[in-house]
Structures are given as structure tokens and as C-alpha cells.
């Protein structure tokens, strides 16, 4: 639905071209939540702004629903932007307007809504984001989470097909982050809205994204489903993101390995397999003993998963590994 084809973007700084994005080829599917993760300066802000042409690509094409939008200008560009909502890290609400006026603002700019329609939509949207009783307050009187909810209501005002989220939860505390992410997930399902979000927090990706691209120094280094990228990170940058979220210190982990004998494996369960008691079963059948070095059971979007690092000691180690493979568990050998 949103396609990037060989997109490059560079900025002219003191007469020299400094590349910000290189060889970007991406496809965001209709109705999905697509995450772009990267450290600050990786180019994710620029990437997001190419979709509503706040930034223009230096070369390459961008298509939405098959229409090449790369060269849109004037009225065509304004119409394109009206179909794309955007929310921001620092909310960017107008401090001089009330909550209701902020939500009404994009409809007023569009000029295609009657007074009654606008009022109806404002009421409906504020109700949907849970702020019906705050309509006449000014943004300065709201908390961060409430401001972002106003931002979301405002972004949805003109019934967009796409919602762009620019680090939308980075300025919020963990609890508020979760509730805002949940709201975005609900809206994605209810309205069939395509969401593109950029973030440096793996947790945000894990909570709502269907698919992910990892951006490093202006290049996409890895992409795939959230589960794939999160559970089997291949690129160094991705691995570091995953370790950061799980609070794993790599050096410490390898220290732990030195203290245990046997074969060290990392097992990844997904879906229903997460809840079956296969580990004990296999251990009994093959006579191996195991000690767990590290583990986590959680959800990626709606899929439960478990990831356990353990060492197998004694018994039929090869047989146990085979049995795990056979049970649909993904097995990585960290130390043979």
C-alpha cells in the first residue's frame, strides 16, 4: 500500500551532500501496523516524513495505493496530506486553542465539513479517546498522556487512511505508553487504519507492530514480522535493541555460560507451544538434565512466545535436541 522504491535522501550541508537515507525499499501493507526502529540519527524521522512529503526524496519513488505521489504539489499535495494523519513525540498541539478546537482545526482547514458535522466528529473522537469531559480545557492543563490522546483525535479528524506516529510514546511514562499503544492498536483494528510508527523503543514495536524494519545509519538492515525480528535478530543493531529491552548484559551472559557444563541452547516457543509442558517430557524421555540460564515468556502483539537459554547435561543430548526440533521449537546452539 505504501511503497518505497530505491529511495535516497541527502541534505546539502555547507555545499556537500550528506546522505540521510540510502537504498530504501519497503512495502507497508494496507491495514497493518508497521514499525521502524533505529537509534537517533538513523534517519527514521526523515523516512516517516517522506510519506506525507514534509521531506522530499532526492531520488527514488514513493507510491501510495499504487499512485506515485513523489512529485505531488499544490492542491494535490494538500489533499494527499489530508488523507494522512500524524502524531508527534511532543504532541504539537496549538496552545492557543482548546482541546475541541484543536480536534476541529484540521476539518476547518479542509473546508469540506459543515458546522454540525465538525461538532459531531469532535464529540465522537473525544469520546473515543476518552477525553469527552476535557473538551474546553487548554492543552497546558492536560497531562502528557491526555495531550497525546488529543493528538490522536486530531490526527483522525479528517478520516485518514494512514496514521504516522513520530516517536509518539517517547515522552510518556511506561504506564501511559502502554495505554496510548493500546489505543493505537484498537484504532488500527476498528478503522482498518494503516499505521506507520517510528521509535527507538523495542517495547513499542513488541506491543503493537505486525512488521518491523530496522534502520541503521540510513539503511534498512533487517525487516520482517515483529516476531521474526524480535526473536531471531540477525543484524548487530537489532541484537543490541533486543538485549536492551530484555536487560541482558552480553558479557554477563557469557560469564554465566563459563560456569555451567553441557550444551547451551536457546529455545524459542511461539503460539500455543509456549504453554505445553514439553521440556519436562523430553528431559524424562532422553535422560538429560537441564539448567535454565535465562528465560522470558511474553507476548509479541497477540502472539505468546517463550525464549529460554538452557544447558543440557548428560543423557541423550542429541536426541533431546532432535525432539525439541520435532516439537516445533526453534533451537539455536549457543555452545556445542
Amino acid at each position: 500500500m505504501i511503497e518505497f522504491e530505491d529511495v535516497q535522501k541527502s541534505y546539502r550541508v555547507e555545499g556537500r551532500d550528506v546522505p540521510a537515507l540510502r537504498d530504501i525499499n519497503l512495502e507497508v501493507r494496507a491495514g497493518e501496523v508497521f514499525g521502524v526502529i533505529g537509534h537517533s540519527g538513523a534517519g527514521k524521522s526523515t523516512l516517516l516524513r517522506l510519506i506525507n512529503l514534509i521531506e522530499r526524496p532526492s531520488s527514488g519513488r514513493i507510491r501510495i495505493d499504487g499512485d506515485d505521489i513523489t512529485d505531488s504539489r499544490g492542491g494535490e499535495l494538500m489533499a494527499l496530506r489530508r488523507g494522512i494523519g500524524m502524531i508527534f513525540q511532543h504532541f504539537n498541539l496549538l496552545s492557543s486553542k482548546t482541546v475541541a478546537e484543536n480536534v476541529r482545526f484540521p476539518m476547518k482547514l479542509a473546508g469540506t465539513y459543515s458546522r454540525d458535522q465538525m461538532q459531531q466528529r469532535v464529540d465522537h473522537l473525544l469520546d473515543r479517546v476518552g477525553l469527552a469531559d476535557q473538551a474546553n480545557k487548554f492543552p497546558a492543563q492536560l497531562s502528557g498522556g491526555q495531550k497525546q490522546r488529543v493528538g490522536i483525535a486530531r490526527a483522525l479528524a479528517c478520516e485518514p487512511r494512514i496514521l504516522l506516529c513520530d516517536e509518539a510514546t517517547s515522552a510518556l511514562d511506561p504506564q501511559t505508553t502502554q495505554s496510548v499503544l493500546r489505543l493505537l492498536g484498537d484504532i488500527n483494528r476498528e478503522l482498518g487504519l494503516t499505521i506507520v510508527l517510528i521509535t527507538h523503543e523495542m517495547d513499542a514495536i513488541r506491543t503493537i507492530c505486525d512488521r518491523v524494519a530496522v534502520l541503521d545509519a540510513g539503511e534498512v538492515v533487517e525487516q520482517g514480522t515483529a516476531a521474526q525480528v524480535f526473536l531471531h535478530p540477525r543484524h548487530r543493531t537489532t541484537q543490541r535493541f533486543v538485549f536492551e529491552t530484555e536487560h541482558i548484559d552480553e558479557d554477563e551472559l557469557h560469564d554465566d555460560f563459563a560456569h555451567v557444563p553441557g550444551r547451551v541452547l536457546r529455545l524459542t516457543f511461539q503460539g500455543e507451544a509456549t504453554y505445553t509442558p514439553m521440556l519436562g517430557d523430553i528431559a524424562r524421555r532422553t535422560g538429560v538434565d537441564y539448567s535454565i540460564l535465562n528465560g522470558r515468556i511474553d507476548h509479541i502483539k497477540d502472539t505468546p512466545y517463550g525464549q529460554i537459554t538452557l544447558s543440557l547435561i548428560g543423557g541423550d543430548t542429541d536426541g533431546a535436541e532432535q525432539a525439541l526440533h520435532g516439537a516445533g521449537v526453534s533451537v539455536e546452539v549457543l555452545r556445542p
Binding site: 506525507n52 514534509i54 504539537n92 498541539l93 496549538l94 484540521p106 482547514l109 479528517c158
Partner: peptide, 20 residues
């Protein structure tokens, strides 16, 4: 950020000046 947000709503320069 406010100018950018208004731009992203599809506002013309005139609308950005008068409205935001």
C-alpha cells in the same frame, strides 16, 4: 513542531499563518 503539524494537516501557507 506546530508549523510542521499544521503542514501535515494539508494547510496552505496562508492557512498556517492565519490559523496557527
Amino acid at each position: 513542531g506546530i508549523i510542521e503539524a499544521t503542514q501535515a494537516m494539508g494547510a496552505s501557507t496562508w492557512q498556517i499563518v492565519m490559523g496557527a
